[in-house]
């Protein structure tokens, strides 16, 4: 015990405050961010923004933990709080509706003002006590002490029973959550067969709704499909997009969205319409007919598009023309 006391005294002498300047700079930066983000919890209108502010505060606290020789807790803070707990919060927010904003009507008169006064009073009392208190000199952990090893020794050596009780608590909590959210079915389950029968009885559309439109340069669920006579089918766009007014109009796609030059279009611009080259079949007769298939060398040579064109006087590709000539020479 005595050498421990000596070590502690030495550490205390080495750093009277125990907090280096860099640590204080970090504290002021991170602490101010944490307080501002925490204030967002009070003032943010929407619950999602409040959740975001709380996440920022928790990450700031994780930074402070790491700076205070508690790297394990800092990582656990990020993983458990911002990773698991806040994810759960955001998930439940999504379940109950993201757009739920607070009602600011007071049922108890003057409650908000009194709450803020009480909060300020709490800051004054707690902060004043902490500020006025004379704390002993910071001892701080030894540099050769591995934080995780120390925590593990304490956790499994000194408090194994607490650890097991905590594990039991987690299991009970998970079971309890499942039990609480379990819903007993009050009405008969409406399966696919019942839904189909009710749909036919109601006389509404029995077949599936049409799929959204697919255009040449664009397809997404916000463009309506067209019926055979070219009219827009409003029902083909999902209802959510329709309600939000995000449906794109057909006029936007007629000229603007199509690619200006498509393959072959440039050749088509100057030349009269050419027939497509046949694939594999004997070429159409013409003035420059390729060699018959019986010739091995000529047959092995792949016939380009120009080879199949009966009238290639307007062919703009000289290389293919030369190639065709070579094929004929063989």
């Amino acid at each position: 015990m005595s050498h421990l006391a000596v070590l502690k005294a030495a550490a205390a002498a080495a750093s009277s405050t125990g907090v280096s300047t860099a640590q204080m700079v970090l504290f002021w930066i991170v602490g101010i961010i944490a307080v501002l983000a925490a204030l967002g919890l009070i003032f943010a209108r929407r619950a999602v923004y409040a959740a975001g502010c709380l996440i920022v505060t928790m990450v700031c606290l994780a930074v402070l933990y790491v700076s205070m020789d508690a790297p394990f807790l800092g990582i656990a803070q990020v993983v458990v709080y911002t990773g698991a707990i806040m994810m759960l919060f955001v998930f439940v927010l999504m379940l109950v509706g993201v757009d739920v904003s607070d009602s600011f009507t007071e049922l108890i008169r003057g409650q908000r003002a009194w709450s803020i006064i009480c909060g300020l009073g709490l800051v004054l009392v707690l902060g004043g006590v902490a500020w006025r208190a004379t704390l002993p000199a910071t001892i701080g952990f030894q540099k050769d002490q591995d934080n995780i090893t120390t925590i593990t020794n304490a956790l499994f050596g000194d408090f194994p029973f607490t650890l097991e009780v905590t594990g039991t608590l987690l299991i009970v909590a998970a079971l309890g959550a499942v039990t609480i959210t379990h819903r007993q079915r009050l009405t008969a389950r409406r399966g696919q067969a019942e839904l189909a029968v009710s749909r036919v009885a109601a006389g509404t559309q029995v077949s599936p709704l049409p799929a959204p439109g697919v255009y040449a340069g664009y397809n997404a669920s916000d463009v309506p499909a067209l019926d055979p006579s070219g009219n827009v089918i409003e029902q083909s766009v999902p209802e959510v997009i329709r309600l939000r007014g995000q449906v794109r109009r057909i006029e936007q796609f007629e000229q603007a969205q199509l690619p200006s030059v498509r393959p072959g279009e440039a050749a088509l611009a100057g030349a009269p319409a050419r027939p497509k080259p046949p694939s594999g079949t004997p070429p159409v007769p013409g003035t420059r007919q390729p060699a018959p298939l019986g010739d091995g060398a000529a047959a092995a040579e792949p016939a380009g598009p120009a080879a199949a064109v009966p009238d290639s006087t307007t062919d703009s590709d000289p290389a293919k023309g030369a190639k065709e000539q070579g094929g004929e020479a063989k």
Partner: peptide, 21 residues
């Protein structure tokens, strides 16, 4: 360590005010 404790007190008060408001 005093600033840390004061920061902790401020955050606690903000949390309590949130619960009330």
């Amino acid at each position: 360590m005093t600033p840390y404790i004061v920061l902790s007190a401020i955050l606690f008060a903000i949390g309590a005010t949130t619960v009330l408001v």
